[in-house]
Amino acid sequence: MKQILFAVAVLTMGLTISQSYHLQLLTFIGIHTILALGLNMLMGYAGQISLGHAAFYGLGAYATGILTAHWGWSPWAALPVALAGTFVVAFLVALPMLKLSGYYLGMGTLGFGMIAFIVFREWSSLTGGDSGLVGIPSLTVGTFSVSSGKPYFFLVWGCVLLAFIACERLVDSRVGRALRAIHDSEKAAAAMGIDTSRLKIWVFVFSAVLAGLAGFLYAHLVTFISPNSFGFLVSIRIVTMVVIGGMASIWGSLLGAAVLTILPDWLHVFTDYEMVVYGLILMAIMIFVPQGLTRGILDTYERSRRKAFTTPDPSQS
């Protein structure tokens, strides 16, 4: 039901909005939503932090960029290769990394993210180095070109819809419950027979592949990529989208991605004060609504509704 409403909303937006600037902004929100959704599965539901997710975003983008721009592959052939590549790298990274917990995991992923960034920057024969990789082709279906504007908007939001369905089904399943169990108490989760380290590895891989998909969509939208789009600050921005939108909230990812895509755009009016305002907003949200915007609103609503429920008296049953 929710999905149908969502699809209708996307459709009306796509058909009514004609200003290309707005379409572009919405397309970016879609790409960021996919990133945030993936990280939310890892961070919000399983409680495992990743400060290097931009690496997988970059991996997806560079994989398709190199295959199509350098080697002349069709983007549609590059897509499965890019996703599979992200899958394999994420798995190899996760295997030793997810034995770590808490800050140590955060630092490990941070280190991986920095190394990936340095590889993008320094392997210039393949990636174009600091000056970037140019000449990534736009997507085409037959003779129909899916370049920027409406077609790309629908492509991206179609992917968002699919990602939403996948994540929502995942959350409301045996796997999703096990993930949340790990978040609440890893000790108790293991005592329920959950193979916590294995599950953490798979959810990490899952979220990395979604980031890889976002990277693919990004690369063919802007047709030019450079390392700075996948650096440490981008990893931090993805984390921030998840936390501001609301951890363990699928719709929160959409909200967080929207806020963090529109905010910098809107902050341009502050010119030199842009960073100051951005930092202040970030801190203020975390201080006053640490559970994120979505949860914050929902919790206030539920609390006012739940007052009717009085704690049951154990001796009377």
Partner: peptide, 30 residues
């Protein structure tokens, strides 16, 4: 910033320090 947090979950604190870092950088730039 740190003392005023109501739910001092580590991820929340990390993001607050990141916010502080952006803020300080912005002030220094000005």
């Amino acid at each position: 910033a740190i003392r005023t947090v109501r739910k001092p979950h580590p991820i929340v604190l990390v993001i607050i320090t990141i916010g502080a870092s952006i803020l300080l950088k912005g002030i220094a730039m000005i």
